[in-house]
């Protein structure tokens, strides 16, 4: 007797479901982290992890098997050269699902699914985000200090904070301009 698939059925037909899962897996390997609905993330996890196992195996047969699902050759290359070797010391549990707040509009439960070992490009983007935050940080630290002693001067503080935010935005813009050159 065939064992039923765990989790929700996606799309309108088996073919649509196959396409949804294949596209989600491709996007996950491309970006390292994707935001989707909880049901799709739950279906994607075992599916993507089996593909990563193929990536760890690394031979031609495994590559052709994975190629049946990952139609994009560039992403297939990333899977076998970057993602596979990255998970050598891990036996399963390659992805992580974190639930996030429901989607505004239809209140669908959402989740972030990501590779436990981040991709190289992901690390770079996070580093740039961190530098942006560092630029913002002095402005943010200044806020509570000002607010704590005198609550009466709220109006004056707001103007100060706004000025600081503008300054932070200018710094951000400068940071964004710098990053493509580097």
């Amino acid at each position: 007797m065939p064992t039923p698939t765990k989790g929700a059925r996606l799309g309108g037909s088996p073919a649509h479901q196959r396409l949804i899962l294949a596209n989600l897996a491709t996007q996950l390997f491309q970006h390292g982290r994707i935001t989707t609905t909880e049901a799709k993330a739950k279906r994607l996890r075992p599916y993507a992890e089996k593909l990563i196992t193929q990536g760890k195996r690394g031979d031609l047969h495994a590559r052709r098997n994975a190629g049946k699902v990952i139609r994009d050759k560039g992403v297939l290359h990333i899977l076998f050269t970057e993602i596979g070797p990255r998970f050598v010391n891990r036996n399963g549990g390659y992805t992580r699902i974190t639930k996030i707040n429901p989607r505004p509009g239809d209140n669908a439960p959402m989740a972030v699914i990501e590779l436990c070992e981040p991709l190289a490009e992901q690390v770079v983007s996070e580093a740039t985000a961190a530098t942006k935050k560092a630029a913002k940080a002095p402005a943010k630290k200044a806020e509570p200090k000002v607010e704590a002693p005198a609550a009466e001067e709220a109006i004056v503080e707001e103007t100060v904070v706004e000025a600081e935010e503008v300054a932070a935005e200018v710094v951000e813009a400068a940071g964004e301009e710098e990053t493509p050159k580097a």
């Binding site: 974190t98 639930k99 996030i100 707040n101 972030v112 996070e126």
Partner: peptide, 18 residues
């Protein structure tokens, strides 16, 4: 909400998610 990443700072279990 419990078992969800914080919508304000984007962290879950002290890990940056959003």
């Amino acid at each position: 909400l419990s078992h969800r990443a914080c919508g304000n700072c984007g962290t879950y279990d002290k890990r940056q998610v959003l």
